[in-house]
Design a protein around this nucleic acid. Structure first.
Lengths: 204, 204
DNA sequence: TACAAATCTAGACACCAATCTATTCCGTCA
DNA sequence: TGACGGAATAGATTGGTGTCTAGATTTGTA
């Protein structure tokens, strides 16, 4: 699907979709679990009861449309994750809370864990979404790690790598759960996952 | 792209491609880094100098073709990973070696880290590949964890979840490296990643 | 209200990729 | 040797994205 190689087109949408259209689209957003390639623009148009031409009027293409959905999901979870990160408690406690919040976000919006690796892979196309994901899901980890490293509450070599590893671990575990069982059992999964991430696998 | 919903078609290839065709295909396998959607069947056909229709004669469709490539890559790395797992040293040592081997595998065959999450997501379509990935990349971790848990060399709650988390961490770190720098610096990355996974982030 | 500008939409089309269908090729065997 | 059958392939079909244009509708404003 590399049709943009020559004949460059704008990757971003010039016009912002008006509120009403945005509402209609967001209303069907949750039905789009396998958000990426399984749904045609035509289907989206039908579901939202919007002419296809209108979608192309407001969005520069399918990628832009998909980005809109993913961005929405990221926005919706950003507050919870931010709260977990900035809340009360020790750094370790907040790190645990944040891991939980991310897992909950993925449980609630499966596309976040099913599509994000694909978006990262094609970061060139999904610049916006990847940046946003970085802000919402990765930055909190990184900041906690920085804080913990500074205060001695955590022992970390490379903060950035470690943050990515944490997100990757949560993402993959969530993805497996999702594929195998259809949903994510946040409580049970986190009980197994978080200690492994915080304490490692070597005995203390 | 859901054209197979009704009118079910066989997901697997009935005929095995003859040696010559297989050779031609595997010869171009390494040029296919972004293996999944970026390459059309037509391009594969041209690269391998084979008529498109012939590919459809031997493979049940694009997915089957992609699976063929991914399986090949998995086979090629399975020995190294198996060796790391079954080699000399303590469980922790072997776990480190295995983590390194997986990272090296991804460095050598980027598709393994870029495409695997997508394949897991669509496990229904990529049954074969996912099973193979499970055997090659996940089972080694799980077995080491089981062994370590039994011997007390490791402390683990849920072996399965932890194994997935390890793979997810390696995968995501590799993916980021790949996207950001174009290659994976195995030595440097592992130096930062492995301690975090083995020892966790909390101080000892 | 009436007109103009901005916004939106229908419909047709160009293009590309995946896949199916019907044909050709070619070795074997009666 | 010629008809059968599987291997291989050319060409057509289908479905989806993205483009374009002319008209319809809404909005702003005098």
């Amino acid at each position: 699907m590399r049709r943009r190689d020559q004949n460059e087109r704008q990757d971003y949408n010039v016009k912002k979709p008006p509120e009403e259209l945005a509402q209609k689209l967001l209303a069907i957003s949750d039905q789009l679990t396998g958000t990426d390639l399984d749904v045609s623009v035509d289907e989206i148009a039908k579901m939202a009861d919007v002419p296809r031409a209108t979608l192309y009027y407001y969005f520069s293409g399918k990628e832009d449309l998909i980005s809109f959905f993913l961005s929405d999901k990221l926005h919706r979870v950003s507050v919870a994750i931010g709260k977990a990160m900035a809340g009360e408690g020790s750094v370790v406690q907040r790190l645990e809370n944040t891991l939980t919040a991310v897992m909950e976000a993925m449980a609630e919006h499966p596309a976040l864990c099913t599509e994000m690796p694909g978006a990262v892979k094609e970061a060139a196309k999904y610049t916006e979404v990847v940046n946003e994901a970085e802000r919402v899901m990765l930055a909190p980890f990184r900041e906690l790690l920085i804080e913990g490293k500074a205060s001695g509450e955590l022992v970390i070599d490379d903060v950035n790598t470690t943050a990515i590893a944490l997100l990757g671990a949560v993402n993959m575990v969530a993805l497996f759960q999702l594929v195998q069982t259809g949903t994510i059992d946040v409580a049970t999964t986190n009980a197994a996952l978080i200690p492994a991430l915080i304490n490692g696998v070597a005995p203390r």
